[in-house]
Computed example of a mutant assay.
Amino acid sequence: MNAQTNTLDYQECMQNAALAFLERHQAEHLGDLSTLLNRTIQHLVTSLDVTESVAIKLVSLAHIKLGEIASRQRLDLDYSSNTVVVIKDPIKGFCWSVPVSLIYERILNAPDNVRLRSANS
C-alpha cells in the first residue's frame, strides 16, 4: 500500500466516525447546527487525535453526507394512517412506524421547539 491510499483510508475512517457522531447527537441540537458541528470537531480532536484543520474538513464532508442520508428517507403514504406515520429508507431497506402522538409530544410540543411553527399562523 502506498502513502496516498493509507491517507485516504484514514480520512474515510475519520469521516465515518464524524458521520456516526453526527447521527447519534443530531437530535440534541435540532435548532443549533453550529454547536453540533463544533461538538463533532472536538470529538475527533480529543477522542481520535485528529488535527483540528483535518477535523473541520472531515466534519463538513460528514455533514454533507448526513444531508444526503436524510433526504433519501420518504414518507410511505400507502402504509401510514391517521395515527401512525411510516417512514422508509429505500437504500438501507429500513422502515419505521412512528405514532403521530409521539411526533407531537417529542417534536411539535417540545419546550425547546423554536424552529417549527403552526401551519395555521
Score class of each variant (00 low, 15 high):
His29Gln: 09
Asn2Gly: 15
Cys13Trp: 10
Pro111Met: 07
Ala55Leu: 02
Arg115Phe: 09
Pro99Gly: 04
Gln4Pro: 02
Leu102Phe: 13
Thr5Lys: 08
Ala18Cys: 04
Arg74Leu: 14
Ala27Phe: 12
Leu77Arg: 11
Tyr104Ala: 13
Leu44Phe: 02
Leu66Thr: 04
Tyr104Phe: 13
Ile41Thr: 04
Met14Ser: 02
Tyr104His: 14
Asn38Ser: 09
Gln42Arg: 11
Gln15Ala: 10
Glu52Val: 08
Leu66Gln: 08
Ile87Trp: 01
Asn109Glu: 15
Leu8Pro: 00
Thr5Ser: 11
Ala55Val: 03
Ser81Glu: 05
Thr5Gln: 15
Val85Asn: 03
Thr7Cys: 08
Asn113Tyr: 06
Met1Trp: 08
Asn82Phe: 10
Leu44Ser: 01
Phe21Gln: 03
Leu58Met: 06
Lys65Asn: 09
Asp89Trp: 01
Ile91Pro: 03
Arg74Val: 13
Gln42Ile: 05
Ser80Asn: 07
Gly31Trp: 01
Gln4Thr: 14
Glu28Cys: 11
His25Ile: 01
Asn82Gly: 13
Asn109Ser: 13
Gln11Met: 10
His25Trp: 09
Ala27Lys: 10
Phe21His: 11
Thr40Gln: 01
His29Cys: 11
Gly93Ser: 07
Met1Val: 10
Asp49Thr: 11
Val86Trp: 03
Arg106Gln: 15
Lys88Pro: 00
Ala3Ser: 12
Tyr10Pro: 02
Ile56Gly: 00
Asp89Tyr: 02
Val100Pro: 03
Ala18Val: 02
Glu28Arg: 10
Pro111His: 10
Leu61Gly: 04
Thr40Leu: 02
Leu33Gln: 14
Phe21Ile: 05
Ala119Thr: 10
Ser121Pro: 04
Ser81Lys: 05
Glu23Phe: 03
His29Val: 06
Asp78Thr: 14
Gly93Leu: 04
Asn120Asp: 15
Phe94Gly: 06
Leu48His: 09
Pro99Gln: 04
Leu8Lys: 04
Glu105Leu: 06
Gln26Lys: 14
Met1Asn: 10
Arg115Ile: 10
Ile107His: 10
Leu58Glu: 03
Ser118Trp: 07
Trp96Ala: 15
Leu66Asp: 05
Ser60Cys: 07
Asn109Pro: 01
Gly93Gln: 04
Asp32Ser: 11
His43Tyr: 15
Leu108Thr: 05
Pro111Cys: 07
Tyr104Ser: 12
Asn2Phe: 04
Val84Asn: 13
Ile64Met: 08
Pro99Asn: 05
Ala18Ser: 04
Val50Trp: 00
Leu36His: 01
Tyr104Glu: 15
